[in-house]
Design a protein around this nucleic acid. Structure first.
Length: 483
RNA sequence: GGGGCCGUACGCUAACCUGGCAGACUACCAGCCUCGGGCGCUGGCUAUCCGAGUUCAAAUCUCGGCGGCCCCA
């Protein structure tokens, strides 16, 4: 984008000055994703897709351990099925893409390309469930969905196609259905913290912001570097809305016919956009070690005179760690060491090992952390253990840094003035609220902030007054400008 | 719905106003190099969105199409 300084591949925008420009350059120049021929639809290149694979594998494993199995349902949904639940249709209709033709003939009934799969899945559930013995039924699918956004697309954060899991579980009773909530939210929280080094705020959505057709929605909210909120994974209690619309009913133990209670839940590729945005810096991406396709890059530093000695040492180091860590030995002759440093930093490899003649003589390697630039020399014989420690430290540091950003910009705001000031300054305002949609709407109109969720870990609305109307507060709500 | 801007190689850009061999940087390919922060050098490859018009001659002027971006409602 800018060649004048002779570094055309480097990111020219500063994250702190121009966040959105920085974000796009970081993603594209690092070869993490690319635009495709379809506006609003992305190509996930290997380092990006690797992260999705990690999220998918770990999440799926935990789903299975908790009794949720994978299945797969069609991508196309007949219009009459799609239209069956009215709130659901209203929520999604404006951005549904339709298939209307096959070859040269018009279809008799147009088919929706799934924006989400409740309707096609519940049509099957209605056929499968007859008795209390068929319950619970807990299925999940990994797929992509299409929502034809008309706002300006942003890579990973707002795209017309994205990848996700959609869990669709059904139970005989409301209690049983509700008991799934914390299991699923804990799985998502674990994946965020332990894999992606991302902190989040779990809580319940307000009725205004809940999923179309749900009784209640719960989300994990994250803070972006511009101090706006972005919604992470979510879980919805759908009650009997869909089961009544789709006729999913069973004969219970007493011989009575009743409708099932349902839940849905999802994590999407959007979280990878949040990961890039939150961890990256002016040099490029910083990928947390557990999801980095390349965890360690070895850069040998040699001239024609000492190439074999240096490569000898570098190969030894590679052999000693490559079985245990995802390691690349960058022995490309065509690039200078400095060029390689910049390249791997741009791509976010968490740990770099430099090996030149000094290290050959000392039998050491020079390690450079991507997260904070720390350099240290490591004795070659201690490598696997030391590298293991360093990767762990990098993960913790990334998490702590993101946590500090979020915590230091989250404020209790018990008055309307405090709320307005917090939103104006940028950040999360946690304020008492009476529960009325008018008060919620007024906050949105006055400040541009919306209710992200009502955090589980913030109690104490007792005795407090709604910041808008002054009547008794029922909830503490996390208000923020939101993606 | 209304208004504006812009389409030159992988990318970024010059030439456009005032018509005359489409130039630089980068990438890419081949080779060299003294290669510790995008090192330096030699050689090579690739482009005027599509169509029509005006003209001896069109990237340049005119018209139409297609595509992209921005602003307003």
């Amino acid at each position: 984008m800018d060649n004048k300084d002779g570094k055309p591949e480097a990111i020219t925008a500063k994250k702190s000055d121009n966040f959105s420009e920085w974000y796009v350059q970081a993603l594209i120049k690092s070869k993490f994703v690319d635009y495709s021929a379809v506006s609003g639809m992305l190509v996930y290149r290997p380092e990006c897709y690797f992260i999705w694979d990690c999220i998918k594998n770990v999440t799926d494993d935990l789903f299975k351990k908790n009794g949720i199995q994978d299945a797969y349902f069609p991508m196309l949904i007949p219009e009459k099925l799609f239209d069956r639940e009215s709130e659901h249709v209203e929520g999604f209709a404006p951005e549904v893409a339709w298939v209307t033709e096959a070859g040269s003939s018009k279809l008799e009934e147009r088919l929706a390309i799934r924006p989400t799969s409740e309707t096609i899945i519940y049509d099957s559930y209605a056929k499968w469930i007859r008795s209390w013995r068929d319950l619970p039924l807990r299925l999940n699918q990994w797929c992509s969905v299409i929502r034809w956004e008309f706002k300006h697309p942003t890579p990973l954060l707002r795209t017309r196609e994205f990848l996700w899991n959609e869990g669709h579980t059904v139970f005989a009773t409301k209690e049983e259905a509700d008991s799934e909530r914390d299991i699923v939210l804990d799985i998502y929280g674990y994946v965020m913290k332990e894999l992606l080094a991302l902190p989040g705020i779990p809580g319940r959505k307000t009725d205004k912001e809940k999923f179309a057709g749900a009784l209640a929605s719960y989300s994990i909210e994250l803070m972006m570097p511009d101090k706006w909120a972005i919604q992470g994974p979510d879980w919805h209690s759908d009650g009997q809305n869909f089961s009544k619309a789709f006729g999913i009913k069973f004969i219970d133990k007493e011989g009575k016919e009743s409708y099932v209670y349902q839940n849905t839940f999802a994590i999407t590729t959007r979280i990878i956009g949040a990961l890039v945005a939150i961890h990256g810096d002016d040099r490029g991406l910083i990928i947390p070690p557990r999801v980095a396709m390349t965890q360690i890059v070895i850069v040998p530093i040699y001239t024609n005179n000492n190439r074999s000695e240096v490569m000898n040492h570098a190969n030894g180091v590679y052999t000693s760690i490559s079985g245990k860590f995802r390691t690349v030995l960058d022995d490309r002759d065509a690039y200078s060491p400095g060029w390689k440093f910049s390249e791997w930093e741009l791509r976010g490899v968490p740990l770099r090992l430099e090996i030149g003649m000094k290290e050959v003589q000392d039998k050491t390697v020079r390690a450079v952390r991507r997260d904070d630039g720390t350099r240290l020399n490591i004795v070659a014989g201690e490598l696997p253990q030391r590298v293991q420690e360093l990767l762990g430290m990098i993960h913790s540091n990334l998490y702590d840094r993101a946590r500090a950003l979020m915590d230091s910009n989250t404020h209790a705001a018990d008055s309307y003035d405090e709320l307005k000031q917090t939103i104006k300054d940028g950040g999360f305002a946690q304020s008492p609220w009476c529960g009325s949609e008018q008060c919620e709407q007024k906050i949105k109109d006055d400040t541009g902030a919306k209710a992200t969720n009502m955090p589980f870990n913030v109690q104490g609305s007792d005795g407090k007054k709604c910041v808008v109307c002054g009547s008794g507060a029922k909830y503490i709500v996390n208000f923020a400008k939101s993606y």
